[in-house]
Design a protein around this nucleic acid. Sequence first.
DNA 1: CTCTTTTCCTACAGACTTACTAGGAAAGGC
DNA 2: GCCTTTCCTAGTAAGTCTGTAGGAAAAGAG
Lengths: 158, 158
Amino acid sequence: MRDNVGMRISARADYAVRAALQLASSGDGGPLKAEAIADAQDIPHKFLESILNDMRRGGLVVSQRGGNGGYRLAKPADAISIADVIRVVEGPLVSVRGVRPPELSYSGPAESLLPLWIALRSNVRQILEGVSLADVASSQLPAGVAALADAPKAWVNP
Amino acid sequence: MRDNVGMRISARADYAVRAALQLASSGDGGPLKAEAIADAQDIPHKFLESILNDMRRGGLVVSQRGGNGGYRLAKPADAISIADVIRVVEGPLVSVRGVRPPELSYSGPAESLLPLWIALRSNVRQILEGVSLADVASSQLPAGVAALADAPKAWVNP
DNA sequence: CTCTTTTCCTACAGACTTACTAGGAAAGGC
DNA sequence: GCCTTTCCTAGTAAGTCTGTAGGAAAAGAG
């Protein structure tokens, strides 16, 4: 039985964003330990560790070992977008058959498929790059996004 | 090395759309054989067969066996959207951790994540449901989509 | 009825991805 | 030295993705 594809947010990406939000909302009471985040957001501890590691390598968080170490955001929460987080843990936001749209080539009646994928990607970017960790953590989504989410139609499954 | 997730259009979905476009553009010179489509679009023949089968079960195409059989669209090309095609071969357009957004529950600073995913999904739908096979086959994308695709920024990788 | 064509169905296989878990080494503070 | 917490390598069970193989069932032509 085939299931869900299309815009798939994996567990890894979902966890990454939630962890980042937890860090964003911790204001500045020192760094947060992986385990504290794991408990707060109900994420498997060791799995989260590897995600936080990706985020550190990607320059999104900084870490401190030992006694009262932990993680904190490397930049202000309003300077990190959801797209930043997803890209750091999973690579490109949009891909077709494993490659990014500009590398594709279509022929015949499928020629205009490329512009379509490009438009789609641009649209997804617009949303995910336009929303910061601070926006979500404070429940203040940008007007355009909030408008989309408020339409009742948006909540019903097709 | 982790790679591409996010909005992933699988080979299966890409092939399905291209096959449907080929059918759309064949006007009405009788049904098209699977092999003819496979050749025209450079899709593995047997793989395409199973995709066309999904599309038949989903009511998108009708088939005819024997002598000069083949496939044709079950509805006019301007009554089938790209979203229809993708959904028939891959299920829901957008999912988070394998489930559809409305089934999720977030807590703490992640509470506003749900509206964000909903907004994202609504946006993706708007595009993919708003473009028909006829639009793509005739290279006449709807104004809003064409505008997105025409922005030079949309074509550069981040 | 037989032959050819083409769809339809089932089964499988190899490579890859996903979501984890285990165990310990390295660093930092007391 | 000791305790904590990050950091690193490895592995694994289950699933998905992209196909292939082989044949049975239908439709029409002769």
